[in-house]
Design a protein around this nucleic acid. Structure first.
Lengths: 191, 191
DNA sequence: TAATTGCTTCAAAAGTTTCTGAAACTTCGG
DNA sequence: CCGAAGTTTCAGAAACTTTTGAAGCAATTA
């Protein structure tokens, strides 16, 4: 049964078509951003398709819309689920699983920042602190100045890391807290 | 001539040895951070060795200390120079080039954020805005609600991007501006 | 201007990440 | 239980990134 007869099927189809394309453009943009931030590109694309579509989608449809294999879909969805940004659901009387995007973007971002960026930074800060501490023990005489400079510089690295950490933490634990003046001031843009 | 006779040569050597190791630990930590942020790991390592050593070093020494080939050193140094985080210098009567780390960390970070992260985000924001705009044209009747929700969600993505942009910009154009209370508050740590 | 030293370039090797597709597994209705 | 439909896993393929090392280039000096 190849064709439905209805009156405005064609225009609708064309619109649908365009809508899909728009979704993909946005999905690719998000994919690029996420890749930039160290995630897999597909994760961003897949989540975005779910997020923008709004409806739960099945694995098969996602494969088709993203042009990826079932294996990739399964793995990517597992990743996304582990990050808590996609939820599985079922429709009664349907054996398939459906997937929905977490829609609270802030929740998502917080979790990711907390679990990835922050712990990464913390690891570095620990190395810095430990190195500094070890350096200041048993300084060879005549090397005082040189070692002192080195210690000073390691401290600077630590400061930088802590500032980054601070910004991220601010974002994480207080999206309640008022970041917006900062934002408005900094961007100097509309809205 | 295997041994120097001097009194505290041995302790000194041992200390030097340990110092190198410490530098490498820190360098690796920075390398990991930088890789995480989308740069090449060697870039971070190399810069850190220069930064902590404090003295200009020649390419050969860097090769040895980082265990990389001359080609890699040359390319990495070129990259670092392009990012403005390493400067070339010469000693009179010496044919070799020497390299020094930019020591103003804030200057470095600002430049990088401005040229990389910000433009990346901007690109995404543009896609979002354009998609939203195109979506709101010629909405098929009966699809109003669905499309409205989609537009809404794209706006949310844009908001997120802009907040990120805001934080980064704040870091960039005002390391003069007072970020420190934020930092102290957020980290809740010593110093 | 020939010889030497150091730097850069680049093709190919090595290493890493991501994706595929088919086999194994799970679930569920009959 | 069996078979069908759906999902996961995983070994290998493909794509991509990084590194090497040797050839070529440039600058310097004898």
């Amino acid at each position: 049964m190849p064709e439905a007869p209805a009156a405005n099927t064609l225009p609708d189809m064309a619109t649908r078509e365009e809508e899909r394309e728009l979704i993909h453009e946005v999905a690719d943009a998000v994919g690029a951003l996420m890749e930039f931030w160290g995630f897999k590109r597909v994760m961003g694309r897949l989540w975005t398709v779910l997020y923008l579509t709004g409806e739960p989608l099945g694995a098969a449809e996602l494969c088709e819309r993203l042009a990826i294999s079932s294996g990739a879909a399964s793995m990517t969805l597992a990743d996304l689920e582990r990050w808590g940004v996609v939820k599985r659901s079922r429709k009664p009387g349907d054996r398939r699983e459906y997937f929905e995007a977490e829609t609270d973007i802030w929740k998502m971002v917080s979790r990711v920042l907390r679990e990835r960026e922050l712990s990464q930074i913390d690891r570095a800060v620990e190395v810095f602190d430990r190195a500094r501490e070890r350096l200041t023990r048993a300084v060879p005489p005549g090397e005082q100045a040189r070692v002192a400079r080195m210690v000073e510089r390691i401290s600077r690295l630590g400061d930088l890391a802590r500032v980054g950490r601070g910004l991220l933490t601010a974002m994480v634990q207080q999206h309640k807290v008022d970041l917006s003046p900062l934002v408005r001031f900094a961007t100097g843009r509309r809205r």
